[in-house]
Simulated assay, not measured.
Amino acid sequence: MPVTIKDIAKIAGVSHTTVSRALRGHPGIAPETVARIKKIAAELGYIPNTVARGLKTQRSGVVGVIVRRIVDPFFSEVLNGIEDTLQAAGYSFFLSSSNRDPEREKTIVRVMSERRVDGVIVCSSQVSEHHRRQLERFRVPTVLINNQAAEESAHSIYHDDVYGGWAVTHHLIELGHKRIAFLGNARGGRTSEERLRGYKQALSEAGLPIDEACIVSGPNGLAEGGAEGARRLLALPELPTGVVCYNDVMAIGVMRVLAEHGVHVPADCSVTGFDNIELAAYVNPPLTTFDQPKYELGHQAAVMLLRLLDGTADSDKRDIVVLRGELCPRESTAPPPENGRFVTEG
């Protein structure tokens, strides 16, 4: 038979109400009593009955988290920030992948609601205002991280992608580059658009022309998307001396294709990424990138959701938090070649 609160109360010589409060860390119970009761519970192998507790509190103690793709390395640190924060507050979470499918995403949220999750955190998906209202219909508090839809949602955590795009481009300009390409992500939505805006802003501030031929998009944010973008740049009569990539994974795809075509990074062409995933420091050459505060994005999203759940935040009031990362220069960027150009073979 499983150990119950009554078993602990009998050994401790206190009421089962006192045991229940002590196990929850209630401030009205003396610290020494709490310590003694927790010690007895541990010795007996007591496991809280979260189902029974949920029936009383109308809370499951579980938060749903939706990401684009579970294998995306960007999300590992974001999820660490979410998990550490929720765990400290007594919550667990279960994870699901939307695979960039809005209909699948709505189905996931509906299922989460049916399973009585207390809230949902959606990471880097294209949730429009229409979709957000549908989420609210299930009466599940929802926080978005880096929502890629054009509209701002009521409770959101964003990274300042305009500044990030500006910073990596400005870094190349400071090194002496004048012909710089931007490789976006055709599926990147608002995020890709804002990084492009930062790129254009840096060029304009430096008095450099914006060459539309040097602005291309890969079909996705994967290495294969970067490879396709690199092929498009190699098709230009003159290869840009620097490439600002949507993210680190695309940048790795770019460097692979450039190497296959005899273009040396950074001697012939400098390449920058974005996000600072762990792998970025270990490719050859190590990738210059922009370090998004990934853990903090997850932490802040979890804090915002917890405030909605405990009533300290007004669910009807917009709450938008914008975080800013920093440039992480490495060896994939250098001054442009002395002749300033690498002519591609036509």
Rank of each mutant, 00 (worst) to 15 (best):
G226L: 14
P219E: 11
P237M: 12
S217M: 12
D275G: 04
R256H: 15
D248M: 13
N276G: 00
E228N: 14
A267P: 01
G218R: 05
T241V: 01
A259I: 04
P266M: 08
L236Y: 02
R256T: 11
A227R: 12
N220C: 13
L239H: 04
I252Q: 15
C269N: 04
V243R: 05
P240M: 11
I252H: 13
T272Q: 08
G242V: 04
L222A: 15
V249Q: 03
V244M: 03
N276R: 08
P219F: 12
L236I: 09
G229Q: 04
R231H: 08
N276S: 11
V243N: 06
R256G: 10
D268E: 07
P237C: 05
T241F: 00
L222W: 14
L258G: 01
D275Q: 03
S217H: 15
S270M: 10
A267I: 02
V265E: 05
A251D: 09
D248L: 14
H261K: 07
A251G: 07
S217D: 08
V271H: 08
V254W: 09
G229V: 05
G273T: 07
A230P: 04
P266E: 13
P266C: 09
S270G: 02
M250Q: 15
G242E: 08
V244G: 03
G226N: 09
A235E: 14
A227M: 14
V254R: 05
G221M: 03
G226R: 11
T272M: 10
P240C: 05
P266A: 12
R231V: 01
V265S: 01
V244Y: 10
E260Y: 10
D268I: 09
A251R: 14
F274Y: 15
A223C: 08
V257H: 06
T241R: 02
L233I: 00
S217L: 13
S217T: 14
M250H: 05
G226T: 10
G218W: 10
D268M: 03
R256F: 15
Y246R: 04
S270I: 07
A251Q: 13
V271C: 12
V263A: 04
G242Q: 06
G218D: 03
L233D: 02
L233E: 02
G273S: 10
R231Q: 00
G221C: 03
P237W: 07
D248P: 11
R232N: 11
G218I: 03
F274C: 11
G225F: 15
D268S: 05
G262N: 11
P266F: 09
G226W: 06
G229N: 04
V271E: 04
V244F: 09
D268R: 08
V257E: 13
Y246H: 13
P237S: 08
V271S: 06
R256A: 15
C245G: 02
A259H: 03
R231G: 00
L258I: 01
L236P: 04
L233R: 00
V243Y: 03
A223G: 06
A235Q: 14
R232G: 06
L233G: 01
L234P: 03
